[in-house]
Design a binder for these strands. Structure first.
Lengths: 225, 225
DNA sequence: ACAACACTTCAGCATGGACTTAACTATCAT
DNA sequence: ATGATAGTTAAGTCCATGCTGAAGTGTTGT
């Protein structure tokens, strides 16, 4: 029993692996490369560490093409990491923000597309309006969808020419549902920011919703803030 | 923020420190030497590790004479350790006991005296019956108490001749209250075992209460099992 | 006063495991 | 097919950090 505990503790005790867990706590499922960037180490190294975490059952993997998406295997893992984080010695206790996690979990960017509650709700709305379809974990734009994006001010043909993935589902940990990644997800976020529906906050990946955004999100996607 | 998390994780990630935390989770406050025995390492080494845990605010110390009693600084620490323990990969899930901690937390020996719920209740009963007094964290036997112990079959004069501490309070983590240690605590436990009120279990520090014990504990100390 | 005990500090050592370099497989794009 | 990208595997290096031995302080008991 106790030797099992020691192994588990040592697993999370390593700086690199601790950073991996910390990163995954923030939200979505990450690819190995994304994690290697996030924790600032080599791909080989990340691969080794992920294998250990995987072996211990703390993470699970979902393979999508040549990518592998890593995320917590269950909510107990997230709880444990959060419990550990709660032990961080408090400096300037009067300056600490009342709710540390909530703004990020509620509405944040996932690298360059929209995740969190809003991101998930947006994806659901697009699916419901038949603007996109979910074909076995692959998103596709419908003929009506092409017109809709055009009306919204996004030229899908331009996006397809880019060298990056066009449209893909991206699992969100905190919401347990897919949201929209790829160039389509990125340009949706981009458009909403240029229209001043949303604003980036300086230091974090969290996003603020403007008054205008609140109205427009309700109108276009029936999203209630 | 994340570097703070890394430090905290690394703190618990070391095998020896993990064992310390695991041991402290079990119940009472331990002395440095007790811990060095429990985790099977040298006193110097324990001292160094305890200093680190202390510095990080995970533990607190209470000095009593030449002893130093270490325990968790607050319940969040216990929660975090338990959350970590919950991540231990389950082998033979059908064989796992329904409630791992409860028997130990409920009634266990603290080396050779009685701790846990029963130990605390016993101490409270003795205090309430004015058999012992709590004088600023020091227990003392009253004149009536001397007679009571004699009737109970314990000769306090013999105990005082022993080379060990006679009577001292011993903080119990799980109950947050004092129970009785020292030779008095030990002989109370001893007497109850020879009278077959209690029985030792083979492998653990947990104690079983017999049917006779259940009645007698109620009669003598108004303890309801 | 003395010895025994509880605990700490500081030196040097030693080892485990993280990281690197390198080579390999698999998938995707053109 | 070819190159680019995502990820893994293997062997070897190296450094951080835990551990030991020796010596110290402070407390207890006789």
């Amino acid at each position: 029993m106790e030797d099992q505990f020691i192994k588990t503790a040592a697993l999370i005790g390593d700086p690199t692996r601790a950073l991996i867990m910390w990163t995954l706590l923030d939200g979505k499922a990450f690819t190995a490369t994304e994690l290697s960037i996030a924790v600032n180490t080599s791909p080989q190294n990340i691969s080794m560490h992920l294998a250990k975490l995987l072996d211990a059952g703390l993470l699970v993997v979902e393979k999508q093409g040549r990518h592998k998406y890593y995320r917590f295997s269950n909510k107990d893992v997230a709880y444990a990491i959060e419990a550990l984080a709660s032990l961080i010695p408090k400096v300037n206790p009067q300056k600490s923000k009342p709710e540390m996690h909530s703004p990020i979990k509620h509405c944040r960017t996932c690298y360059d597309h929209l995740a969190g509650k809003i991101g998930v709700a947006l994806a659901e709305s697009l699916l419901e309006q038949k603007i996109i379809l979910d074909l076995d974990h692959k998103f596709e734009v419908t003929p009506e969808g092409i017109k809709w994006f055009s009306d919204f001010g996004i030229n899908l043909e331009d996006l397809k020419k880019q060298r990056r993935l066009f449209l893909k589902p991206c699992l969100d940990w905190s919401e347990r549902k897919n949201h929209i990644a790829g160039s389509v997800g990125a340009s949706l976020l981009d458009k909403m920011i240029t229209e001043d529906w949303l604003r980036r906050t300086k230091d974090s990946r969290a996003i603020q919703i403007t008054g205008k955004g609140e109205k427009e999100l309700l109108k276009y996607f029936k999203i209630v803030i």
